[in-house]
């Protein structure tokens, strides 16, 4: 539910900011946070990432399967590593680091798909800068349960 809402918010913000900036990847960050909290099964998160990516491609990129591939790869990577870490070692800074890295990975993937990179360099940098506090928030929120336990 949260990733679906994040997807819609990201879409609406992108409509609002079409001419000025690339909105941070709220959908991916929400998936990272939900994965961190363990609120959904890994399989449902993977397929959620796939569907969300596919819809994003249908709406924005036109390269059907591209964002789906990026999101699935990012989430798969997270699930593989995060679930190997003992509960005691799972911390907000660590999840934030994952969120930051994966946000950079997905952003870089989209950035490189533009072809002519020079005009979109600034957009990419702005997206990553704006994504920084959101990634920190995703890490904190995703690990809240771990700290409370």
């Amino acid at each position: 539910m949260i990733p679906a809402l994040a997807w819609l918010i990201q879409d609406l913000l992108q409509v609002l900011a079409t001419e000025t900036l690339l909105v941070p990847d709220l959908f991916l960050l929400s998936l990272v946070a939900v994965a961190g909290r363990g609120q959904a099964t890994p399989q449902s998160l993977l397929w959620g990432a796939f569907v969300g990516g596919l819809l994003w491609d249908a709406r924005w990129t036109g390269l059907l399967g591209f964002s789906a591939l990026l999101y699935v790869a990012a989430l798969w990577f997270l699930l593989e590593f995060w679930n190997r870490i003992p509960h005691g070692g799972r911390s907000a800074p660590l999840l934030s680091l994952f969120a930051l890295g994966l946000h950079l990975f997905a952003g870089l993937g989209h950035f490189l798909s533009w072809g002519d990179l020079e005009p979109v360099q600034r957009l990419f940098l702005n997206q990553q800068i704006l994504g920084l506090p959101l990634a920190l928030f995703a890490g904190w929120w995703g690990c809240r349960g771990e700290t409370d336990e």
């Binding site: 990516g53 390269l63 789906a68 699935v72 798969w76």
Partner: peptide, 14 residues
């Protein structure tokens, strides 16, 4: 399932 999703995404992309 990760492998299936990646293959599916690649097929769609291509």
């Amino acid at each position: 399932q990760g492998v299936i999703a990646v293959i599916l995404a690649l097929l769609l992309l291509g």
